[in-house]
Every structure is written in structure tokens, then in C-alpha cells.
Amino acid sequence: MSTDNSQRNAISIRNLVVDYGQRRILSDVNLDIPMGQIMVIMGQSGAGKTTLLRCLLGLKKPTSGSVHILGTDIASASLREINKVRIQMGVAFQGGALFSSMSVAENIQLALREHTNLDEKTIEIMTRIKLDMVNMLPAEHLMPAELSGGMTKRAALARAIIMDPKLLFFDEPSAGLDPSTAAELDQLIITLKNTMRMTIVVVTHELDSIFKIADHIAVMSNGLIIETGTPQQITASTNPEIQGMLNRKPRETIVDTDTHLRRLTGGV
């Protein structure tokens, strides 16, 4: 049954525990992410979303538990094995993490240059195809410092999909973007799933985009996954904490102005 599971699931996490010094960040996380679908990991700041993502990327060794990605246990694998898996995944980081010394095109080409022996012409064409997909063709020769927030995210996305990965991770796609740019990115993520049949993991706390893009949602709170299910199931959940998160939406704007005001007055 478990072998069956690992074939249907791109990622399966079992009993994942992560300690950071004395603090327990993740306690006993279990999660299956099915192939070819969009899984959104949501939760408030400090719930452990980022740590979970770092474990999935092999950047953080968990204290215990297993993280099977495409059949390899990232938690116990050697760097060489992890890197074999990493070639099949793409990551778009929150701040873009574009290499500031390289142009947009060079950023996107980097993985191709390092991992394939394609000739210059092919690399250029592939770069343009990916740039076109994210609507960034005119920005090909710009430097990362010259890009706006939305463009940076789109360039990062183009870099993440250059190797046609099976798995795409997206950290806070809409953070720091205006609503229409965020909506554009959401649309892009859905297109990627449909056209390239990618398994996509999105970590975010923006309720708007969660319900637009998610096939499945995992809700995190205090280092635990408290609920998983389809968007309908999550909306119908009776868990008071989840209802709190979902219904805070109208209040969220008030809280936001509040924090905004506090920031303005220097209270932070």
C-alpha cells in the first residue's frame, strides 16, 4: 500500500519533527501531496510553513521523520541523491532570489548551463520560451535590480521552470504585490499546472489566491497540520481555528490598517 502511495503522491511526509535549538518548530507533520495537483500550505506567520518548505527543499535536515519526494527520502539521503531530486524540482523564492550579478536571461539559463550540454542557440531559445510563458520577454536583458516586484516574481518563476521540473515550489507568490499582479501570478500557476502537468506546492497566507488556485489545502498551526482537504472541505470545516482564519478575512483589512497606522506612528 505504501508503494502504491508513493507512486500516486509526489511528496509524502511522515512524522516530521524539526527542532531549532530548544524550540520545536514542527511537531509530527504528516502530509501527502498528489501528483499533478496544486497543494496550498496555509497558516499564519510562525506556524512553521517556511520550515516545512525548507525541509521539502532539502535545505533543513529534520530532527526525525521522513520526507519522500519522487521516491527519495530527502531527510536521510546524501547530498548527491538530494541533488538528483532537486534537478526535477523548481523553486520560486519569496523575494525572487535572483542572482543580482546576472541579467534576467542569465539567471534563467543558469541551471541549463550547469546541468546540460545544450548549445548556446538552444539555451537561448529555451530561455525565451520560458520568458514568454511568464510574459517577461521584453525584460530579457534587464538586471534584477531594474525589475519591479511582480516582474521579479515572474522572472523567478521562469527560472524555476527552466528545466521543466515535475515539482514546483512557490513561496508566498502574492506577498507584497498589488491585487491585479497577484491575480496574474495565480492565473500563471494554474496555467502551469494545466499545460505542463506539474505538481505545485504553494506556501501562502493570502486567502484570495488560496481559494483561486488550490486543489488541496493543508492548514498549519503551531507546527502541526490541523486539517487537509479540498477547498470545499476546508470551508466546511468545523475546526474553530480554521473558521477563525477563514472568517477573519473581513476583519483582516481592519487589522491591516491598524498595523499600518501603528507602523506610521512608529510603534511597529
Binding site: 535545505l59 543580482s100 550547469e114
Partner: peptide, 22 residues
């Protein structure tokens, strides 16, 4: 240092490129 705090080093690792070598 800036590459580290802006996750550029992480990005390299995730592309299976060794930051040490690169």
C-alpha cells in the same frame, strides 16, 4: 552575506548547484 540573506544561496542549492564551487 547579501546572497545568503536574500535566499540566493538557497536558490543555488535548490538548483543542485554547489555554492562552494559556484
Amino acid at each position: 552575506g547579501i546572497m545568503r540573506i536574500t535566499e540566493q544561496v538557497d536558490a543555488l542549492e535548490c538548483m543542485a548547484i554547489s555554492p562552494g564551487k559556484f
